[in-house]
Design a protein around this nucleic acid. Structure first.
Lengths: 242, 242
DNA sequence: GTGATTGGCACCTAGGTGGAAACG
DNA sequence: GACGTTTCCACCTAGGTGCCAATC
């Protein structure tokens, strides 16, 4: 059941919302979730996924997500711990991410879990791509809004049904601070598979140790050209580690 | 302007439609366009792209595409020519491909060309993926429908505005018959770049001539294992062509 | 035997990862 | 200096190509 933040008044008492990948979120939450933000925009991991019940199957709904500051502090990772370093930077006007299926019928939203994997976070205050703008080293709480409306223009603010799951809050960073968070991301995000230690000692780190620092490993093309130096580059000795 | 098929009565005389990539379509049309159909579904190339004018910017429209049999014949490619071999197979009930932006406002559809690149063709009569089912070796004419409606359920058949561009018709095939069509696809479809002759004599065909027929060219991984046989496989002599 | 179809594959496009070094 | 940010890159996922051999 939804561990929804209590301060939101839910207009439609019939709607039930459930965080799908709660276990994964809780693994991160127990350590202190961090989300990378970049100029060009970065996805969240874990992805926010939820299932819905109690919508009117024939009515139309728009689903949105936003990120609200969790407190008024700026943080810093010091001695393996997050500590407050001062007052928060001014929060940019909070953008709304509209789920791309919107608008859709209640039956559409209920027939399978809804994923917000395409949502992207940025630290670029001038972003033109519609990504959600955050301040680095600040805490944020994701919220989902379920709004019965035929289109964006007829949405009424007083018809928002807003939910938040406490275990999804995070600190925005430009580089991971806590190594345990990095490792959880590598272990569970399929796009980071290249950084997994595969157990046979052939980890990416081993490869990097064998690289000259200026060696650019292009995929070797099939070459009959004797001047092709691809294989020579691979035989280089390991550089002295700095 | 639209060389629309004459037999469709257009309810809304204000709507103007233009085939965007007409030159490319005409290159194929001059030779005899073929489209591959597969069990899992294959995209069309060229992609059907059009620009629209004369819609009500504030009204909602649904855009659809379907493929209708061009005649009642089954064809065969014989002596570098398409010839009729008999009567057509029964046509499956024609599925409609709904453009994924639907429903959207007139201004949305008009602000940039509309692409149907995600439409897929299949020869699987039992297809469950919503792809358009065609018979191989039959001729088809793509048609686009512009329908003012708020959603799929309130669409009225008498409000369809249907257009067809003669140069987009094609023969469905399971393997290309005309070599010139294959070459045009390779030259213009970015996903087929691997088959282009890059001008330096290093074409994919050269590589294939150097392959033993059972050689599976994995991307060489960085291997310190002396038993790795990747490079040996490449030194095989050219097989006698069958 | 002939002709059409299928499945596997190398080779692409397109784009999401964290690492490392450079930058501020 | 210390620390936060940026950029580039190898390495992935995901999936669209025509070719080829096998199959029907």
């Amino acid at each position: 059941m939804a561990s929804a933040a209590g301060r939101e008044q839910n207009r439609d008492k019939n709607i039930k919302i459930n965080l799908e990948n709660k276990e994964l979120w809780q693994k991160f939450h127990a350590i202190g979730t961090e989300m990378i933000i970049t100029k060009s925009g970065r996805r969240m991991f874990p992805t926010f996924k939820c299932s819905l019940e109690g919508l009117d199957p024939h009515a139309k709904y728009i689903l949105l997500m936003d990120l609200v500051p969790l407190d008024d502090c700026r943080y810093k990772y010091h001695n393996s711990e997050w500590v407050v370093t001062g007052k928060a930077e001014p929060h940019m006007p909070g953008r709304l991410y509209i789920h791309p299926d919107s608008p859709a019928s209640g039956s559409h939203w209920m027939k399978q879990p809804v994923s917000f994997h395409k949502l992207k976070l940025t630290n670029n205050n001038l972003d033109q791509n519609g990504h959600i703008i955050l301040n680095s080293m600040h805490k944020y709480q994701p919220r989902i809004h379920v709004v019965q409306a035929n289109d964006i223009f007829t949405m009424r603010w007083n018809s928002f049904n807003t939910y938040a799951f406490e275990e999804t809050h995070f600190i925005a960073v430009t580089a991971y601070q806590n190594e345990q968070i990095t490792q959880l991301k590598i272990d569970h995000n399929p796009f980071a598979k290249g950084f997994r230690d595969n157990g046979m000692g052939r980890s990416r780190v081993d490869v990097l140790h064998c690289r000259d620092h200026r060696l650019h490993m292009k995929r070797p093309s099939i070459s009959m050209d004797p001047s092709d130096k691809t294989s020579h580059d691979l035989s280089g000795t390991a550089p002295t580690s700095k």
